[in-house]
């Protein structure tokens, strides 16, 4: 059974329809990419999944609709959303940011162990643990956002454009870490990207979003091989 299923998900801002019926599914343990240009609806899709905006259509996590349909409820179910702009709590320290990632966790011993693991992925976070999160560089903030999401011990991680505004070298580093996290922690990842090449390399499956609709979807290898798809949607 799919871990996450969207069935004809629709959303609008005011009078404007932004999502015109998104249907997709994410298998447990997979990395799935949502590709698309600015304004294609990637961020809105994520916000719709976590219930941050009103929607119609179905979102099923683990076969069940998300009760309460709010970001808090989604977090409690184990959906960690790394939002656009990374959701850094700028005035709080790196350590406090990480601690809040574990807000839904009750077992403090386990949280400590998770913290050690997160810090092993991102040693730089440990070096800066008492620094205000807002003073970190963009790449470090992205690492903090991923680390904080991991503190939740999520089953599903939603990553909204992790490459945004970062140097190519750091982006590659982050994607390598995502693959590592996916393998060793067993976290299922749904990642949205404009950087199609990189995302397709990491993901097993991808959906190409165009103005609120899914234009193409399929296994990453197939999308990569298809010249027409590559030229018209992926831009390389």
């Amino acid at each position: 059974m799919a871990l996450l299923e969207l069935d004809d998900l629709r959303a609008r801002y005011g009078e404007t329809d932004v999502l015109h019926g998104i249907t997709l599914s994410v298998e447990p343990g997979a990395i799935v990419a949502i590709l698309g240009a600015n304004g294609a609806g990637k961020t809105t899709t994520f916000r719709a999944i976590t219930g941050a905006i009103p929607t119609s259509g179905a979102v099923r996590f683990d076969g069940r609709p998300i009760k309460g349909n709010s970001p808090e409820a989604a977090a409690r179910l184990g959906i960690a959303h790394v939002p656009e702009g990374r959701g850094t709590l700028a005035a709080l320290t790196v350590r406090e940011n990480l601690a809040l990632g574990a807000f839904t966790q009750k077992d403090s011993k386990r949280t400590r162990a998770t913290y050690e693991r997160v810090v092993s992925y991102f040693p730089r976070l440990a070096e800066r643990c008492n620094q205000a999160a807002g003073t970190l560089s963009g790449g470090e903030q992205q690492m903090l956002a991923i680390g904080r999401a991991l503190m939740m011990e999520p089953r599903l991680m939603l990553l909204d454009e992790p490459s945004l505004g970062l140097a190519p070298l750091i982006v590659r580093e982050i994607f390598a870490l995502l693959e590592r996290i996916n393998k060793s922690d067993g976290v299922t990842i749904l990642v949205s990207e404009q950087n199609a090449k990189l995302a397709l390399a990491a993901a097993s499956h991808a959906y190409v979003l165009e103005t609120g609709r899914i234009a193409v979807s399929g296994p990453s290898a197939d999308l990569n091989r298809d010249d027409a798809v590559r030229k018209s949607y992926l831009g390389y």
Binding site: A52, A75, L92, E96, L100
Partner: peptide
């Protein structure tokens, strides 16, 4: 305390802290 920290986060960053599961 974790609760105190969560209250600070909720006051300063309402949207971001909801994403972390903090009930606003």
């Amino acid at each position: 305390t974790k609760l105190g920290l969560a209250m600070r986060a909720a006051a300063l960053y309402p949207a971001e802290s909801r994403v972390l599961g903090i009930p606003q």
